[in-house]
Design a protein around this nucleic acid. Structure first.
Lengths: 222, 222
DNA sequence: GTCTATAGAAGGATAGAC
DNA sequence: GTCTATCCTTCTATAGAC
């Protein structure tokens, strides 16, 4: 039994690449159900039949995109380190997320489409891997707060707000640009704005270390 | 020529209501292309043919939902008033938006789906009405900043951040709940968190009225 | 590995009886 | 106003020649 699905030749690897690239274009704007193989074939410059030679089905194609997405999607949050200075560490995370929104808007929209549709293909991932990662980093933030190195914020909702504000520039890109007007690049101002927003919320106000009430049971990494 | 599309009897008005309700369910999670008349008919408890008796087409149904949505969607921003105390006025806006995310999550997702798909049916609205409203309120915020009653923030990106953080609890509801864990209502903590976040970013630090650099050309409501 | 052809199902919309 | 039946298009996926 030969397995034509593993790239064996250069042309195969290249075609699989081209197909995924085209599929990302279409799935990210149309959603899974809204996308058609015809659209993807046209975008890839291949015949519809050829698509199905490389990927068994529409579902397979979509799954391949999601796997590749999740590989890199969480890197910025994973990189948040206990070693750094708390405010700077979180602001660096905000900056990286905004960069990802700028450089990989289609990946962000692919993800957003999935969640909007009830996350049918990602529930498992979110409830296990993503949740564990959030718990770990929320505990780190809670520790920083307890140490008085960060203003008291709800760690998990802080993470939600970072996701929401940064991904907004990818997922709602059309709206942002229409509201700002033509010819204005949203990202430089967005970067300055988000840095100021989160810096203001995170910077401890003064030596009130003991007066700060911990918002979550942060006794260590979960 | 009789116009059966205008509700003349109680039963017609009621059926049109039932259909829109079902259509909102389906369109908001599947997007326009992903939704099918069969799904909507099943959700409404009517036959597919009956749907098409009340609405000419799938497109008509969707348009009716969008019109109704836009009617109420902008009310909270419109309500932001020059009369109130600036920080309180903006925090009230945040609170109202979060309430809308909680009470009308399907409407929020319907909107998000449209934008994600490139806003093909709303470009006009966004580029004219929404843009004008944002300009007007951004000018108000800029004036408040110039008067030293608000910390210096980018007015338009502030509005984007409010949209992003509040709508996140509707559009990404599935993810939020999976990450928080079962049985935890996200909204009370979200309310406290967002109020603290924006209060910290908006509260002027001290009597630095003249040192504050205006971020946008805010010489009056545009 | 690529192409034409087509099966088989699903989807949007219409016809016409009652 | 509602129902059954149906048309036509689109869509996924497969068959089989080359």
């Amino acid at each position: 039994m030969n397995l034509p699905k593993r790239p064996r030749t250069r042309i195969q690897a290249r075609n699989r690449e081209i197909i995924l690239e085209a599929a990302l274009d279409v799935f990210s704007t149309q959603g899974f159900r809204g996308a058609t193989l015809d659209q993807i074939a046209a975008a890839a410059g291949l015949s519809k039949h050829n698509l199905l030679y490389y990927y068994d089905s529409k579902e397979t194609m979509h799954a391949a995109l999601l796997v590749r997405l999740l590989d890199t999607w969480l890197a910025p949050l994973r990189a948040m380190s206990p070693q750094g200075e708390p405010v700077a560490e979180i602001l660096r995370y905000v900056g990286r997320k905004l960069e990802m929104a700028q450089e990989f808007p289609r990946e962000s929209r692919l993800f957003a489409n999935e969640i909007l549709q009830g996350a049918p293909r990602m529930e498992g991932f979110i409830a296990t891997e993503l949740r564990a990662l959030v718990e770990e980093k929320a505990a780190l933030v809670a520790r920083w707060i307890a140490e008085g190195r960060l203003a008291p914020v709800d760690p998990r909702h802080l993470i939600f707000s970072i996701w929401a504000t940064t991904q907004h520039y990818a997922d709602f890109d059309v709206q942002v640009r229409l509201v700002l007007g033509p010819g204005e690049d949203p990202f430089p101002a967005a970067r300055r704005h988000l840095e100021a927003l989160f810096r203001a919320a995170l910077t401890p106000t003064g030596p009130t270390t003991d007066a700060v009430a911990p918002l979550a049971g942060g006794t260590g990494p979960g």
